[in-house]
Amino acid sequence: MTLLVTVFAAVICTVIWYKNAPKSEMLTGILCCMYWGASLMWLVDAIFEYAELKEAYFTPAPADMLNDLFLGLSVIALGLVIWLIILLIKDPKGVIKNMLFKKK
């Protein structure tokens, strides 16, 4: 479930990045890389888990699924927070800089 949620987030971010390309004012490329990186790593995790559990991998307990869904959503939220911090620090549009150094 966590893998699925992250893949969806990665696909949505990639579509947004593609729509705005070649402009990268919002640094969506970083968000794409973050979610795709996590998706690939969870894919490996899923493959190893499948090799161990076989078909039982596809029939998780409802409580486990709910926990994984919460985890997936929390991961997306964390990714967005990290991206927002990077965006505000790098400030590609100069919004923060203009605010801080605004002449009275």
Binding site: I30, M34, G37, L40, V75, I82
Partner: peptide, 16 residues
Amino acid sequence: NLLWGGSVLLAFEHVW
């Protein structure tokens, strides 16, 4: 970016 992003989010899973 791929590696750091994946590692940080996976580290969060391990904390979870």
